[in-house]
Design a protein around this nucleic acid. Sequence first.
DNA 1: GGGTGATCATAACAAATGTTAAGTCATGGG
DNA 2: CCCATGACTTAACATTTGTTATGATCACCC
Lengths: 243, 243
Amino acid sequence: MTSDRIWASLFERLKTTTGADDKKLLFLAALPVSLRDFRENQTVLRDGEEPSECCLIVDGFCVRSKTIPDGRRQILSIHIPGDLPNLQNLHYATVDHDLVALSDCTLAFIGHRALKELIRERPGVGEMFWRDTLVDAAISREWLVNVGQRSTYNRLAHLIVELRERLRLVGRVIDNTFAIPLTQEQLGEAMGVTSVHTNRILRDLRIDGVLELQRGTVHILNEHKLQELAQFDGRYLHLSPSS
Amino acid sequence: MTSDRIWASLFERLKTTTGADDKKLLFLAALPVSLRDFRENQTVLRDGEEPSECCLIVDGFCVRSKTIPDGRRQILSIHIPGDLPNLQNLHYATVDHDLVALSDCTLAFIGHRALKELIRERPGVGEMFWRDTLVDAAISREWLVNVGQRSTYNRLAHLIVELRERLRLVGRVIDNTFAIPLTQEQLGEAMGVTSVHTNRILRDLRIDGVLELQRGTVHILNEHKLQELAQFDGRYLHLSPSS
DNA sequence: GGGTGATCATAACAAATGTTAAGTCATGGG
DNA sequence: CCCATGACTTAACATTTGTTATGATCACCC
């Protein structure tokens, strides 16, 4: 795979969110990476590990998740191409959750040492990544609002709109149709409800003509209704460098 | 107020979590700050603002919260002395939630400009703060698990144990008794349930001899039962510099 | 020292969500 | 081609949680 394809999604995103110039990005592209493929459901990082690399999602979907002693599992975030789901391990050793491939995935691993060196030489790169982790935190807080306060019906609409906005940034939305390769059980784990209830809500959304979800692909049927349900205010994504 | 008292809680925490040496902390203590007092329920930062300072909680409790259009409110985090609840605004302009004083509070405001200068001169200080925001994010993820997967009964136990661990770090736990100055309605907003239901759960915990909450003060009655309910694994707080 | 408003407490009932169970539908492997 | 498997779908029923309402209690102010 060419270096271009490895970095493309991340660079697209960073250009929009931080206004990064090509020079800064060239330093990144010069970092040594090692590519590794993962299959659907394969664990990338396990709770308790102490990785010596950060990973960049080149292609495919991953989730962070946490399993509590009684076996229940919460999906903490959905990660898409261009995401750096464990940048935090640059500053503390232990992963405190799992990172699992949702679909077949290609990941690029970047050694902490090389990354830290680059950041030391180019503080601007560090600021960019710091910001990235801060937006990641803002997304977690919005998920907390979603799970804590919105009805499951609205909650699912919000989750889908957020994912669409993020996918759009990296060119993964075509004809208002995009991938969300979660099973109903996994969607439930992201929303804090059971798979049975997720099924009910999906049925309602289908019957109400809002959207359809088939084999991991979302089709929006009524954009206006969807917006109304999601009450989506994307400011928390901080898409513009100045916000 | 002396500079010592202003920085005491933050320094205590940073020494434990990052192993920061006195030298690094002296640079911090040299930063110009402006003190401001807030009364109970006063808003410190409002959703949408673009502050030019970060604030340090010197004394008292604050919460971050987010209100959705239908009026429901989610408390995103509880902040205690030593916390820096809006460090994120160093790297993006807009606050995407409210910051509200839970009790009468003293806050120290530190200008972005001075802070950024210090970080440029002392990258180690920047790394320490970056880490701090990463732990803040890890706490948000744990709250997501709490709200999404634990029963309300266990959820409240977990919230209380987490708060106790964090308060202990800054010397605010005496005789296993500590402050949690949230009304039942606010506790409900933190857990994603109504105040009526919060009241039910508190009654159950009282009847079961686990703990009592009176006028904002927690008394642990049965430590063993509390642990059992909370299933608390504090690794996500990353209290040790090496984890 | 009596009003006033917030908070706490509790009950009855309604609505949302979980549990269990069963059957259907796709898909890939032998 | 058929079987095995996982995912999806639905229903009946149980449990949790929300809603609404009503008093009780507490803190504070005039």
